[in-house]
Amino acid sequence: MKARLVIEVNRKPYPVEVDPNTPLLYVLRNNLQLNGPKYGCGLEQCGACMVLLDGKATPSCLLPVGTIKKQSIVTLEGLTQPNGSLSPVQRAFVEQQAAQCGYCLNGMVISATALLAENKQPDDIAIRQGMERVLCRCGTQSRIIRAIRQAAKEANP
């Protein structure tokens, strides 16, 4: 049964009328027409659907939207500044050309953003641990690691 809910996405409240069991991913993609979070496995195994839930990288593919109370949701789109400029992590991914097909990019950028918020200067092991949940099949991980190092350096020169 559908219910009226309000979720806070990218710092704005959105009223939605959905079955509260609907995983957040489908609400973001279909009701809010956002493209950042991607469907990859629906099993919380690949990380393509990551969003920031109160700043923490969280898979959205199984999370029932009705269980989200006052938490803030930030998607890939929400990382971009209101004036259109990219966040340091987004910019580092573009500058390092850290993608091939780019389907995993959402999970990568979201996870890297959460990692750098917690650990401003992650070493190699911390980067790998922080990114372990997100799969890339094109093999761009070495570029992604470079992008995260660049973003960390720019934030704390």
Binding site: Q33, L34, N35, G36, K38, Y39, T75, L76, E77, T80, L86, Q90, F93, V94, E95, Q97, A98, A99, G102, Y103, L105, N106, V109
Partner: peptide
């Protein structure tokens, strides 16, 4: 030459068949 589609991906713009509406 950098690929311009990577910035579109990083912004979450529609790129894929999955994003068609």
């Amino acid at each position: 030459i950098p690929r311009t589609d990577i910035e579109r991906m990083a912004r979450g713009e529609p790129v894929y068949v999955q994003d068609l509406r």
